[in-house]
Design a protein around this nucleic acid. Structure first.
Length: 278
DNA sequence: TCTACTGCCACCTTTGAAACGT
DNA sequence: AACGTTTCAAAGGTGGCAGTAG
């Protein structure tokens, strides 16, 4: 994820499906981001490797979902998006963005706080607060991209970066493509590796894109979409989020089953792993 | 000298107000 | 007058790149 002084949105952002809440109970949804370990990292051209001790983490910065507090019924009737969350490396930030350090490794955390238990200071480690983390959402914070494949992935799927696509006027100069011709081979390897895992050998980027578009709204009927004021078109939604299911009974717990949509995200995560960037 | 960071830029999407048509 | 659609400009988000700092 890119950090800037004025704050930069996460992309892909986190979006959660929540079920099993008490429909009438009001909840506050809070997201924060915690360091995964105590290392600073560097990119050696192929993978991230530890490079010294981590900077002290800036505590106390969280993102409270703007629609909090809302009832369990409200949170469950649509996916909950955190696309407005912004990251910064400015330790003097006054905007309330989440402060992270560049070249460090982080994991987003979702906290479910019963509203009637909430005081002016939300205690995220309180007994009634349920915290969820998903290893798939781990990321490295940087101020400039280290890996051209991640850059290209974001350009391809972030609608705000459309101007940098190959068919755009501001596309990456051809010389870069030539310089990185070895990356094309690696990308080919990725899809070969994908086919080994049960995907058809003919799968290509376009196909992958289409498959994901097709499944972007699986399980979401038209009324769901109408109800979702933050609903986006399929292209914007594709890869625009790290989509995650939560489920709960009396006590929330992780949903074991995975939807086809989630499989898509996992598949893409797998690609990034193949690339050596996750 | 090298690496990470910063500020500015062009290009894009989103959003909301104004203009227009029914 | 009320409502719906279209247009347009401003705001905001994006990565690239050159310069700067350590």
């Amino acid at each position: 994820m890119i950090l800037t002084k004025q704050g930069r949105r996460m992309f892909p952002y986190c979006r959660y499906w929540i079920t099993g809440l008490d429909a009438t109970q009001r909840y506050i949804l809070v997201m924060d981001i915690s360091p995964v370990d105590n290392h600073r990292y560097k990119w050696n051209g192929r993978w991230w490797e530890p490079s010294g001790k981590a900077e002290p983490h800036v505590l106390g910065r969280v993102f409270i979902h703007p629609e909090s507090p809302s009832t369990g019924q409200y949170w469950m009737h649509q996916p909950v998006s955190f696309y407005k969350l912004k990251l910064t490396n400015n330790t003097l930030d006054q905007e309330g963005h989440i402060i992270l350090h560049s070249m460090h490794r982080y994991l987003p955390r979702l906290h479910l706080v019963p509203a009637d238990k909430a005081t002016e200071v939300i205690q995220l480690n309180g007994p009634d607060v349920h915290t969820f983390t998903f290893p798939q959402t781990e990321f490295f914070a940087v101020t400039a991209y280290q890996n051209i494949q991640i850059t290209q992935l974001k350009i391809d799927y972030n609608p705000f970066a459309k101007g940098f696509r190959d068919d755009g006027l501001n596309s990456r100069p051809q010389r870069d493509v030539k310089q990185n011709s070895n990356l094309e081979l690696e990308a080919g390897d990725v899809f070969s590796a994908a086919s080994i895992r049960g995907r058809p050998a003919e799968v290509d980027a376009l196909d992958l894109h289409q498959r994901s578009l097709d499944s972007s709204f699986i399980g979401q009927n038209p009324s769901d979409i109408d109800l979702d004021k933050e609903s986006f078109n399929a292209e914007r939604d594709f890869l625009g989020f790290l989509d995650t299911d939560l489920s709960s009974g009396d006590v929330p717990k992780l949903k074991q089953e995975v939807s086809e949509r989630w499989v898509n995200i996992l598949f893409l995560a797998q690609i990034l792993v193949e690339w050596g960037v996750w």
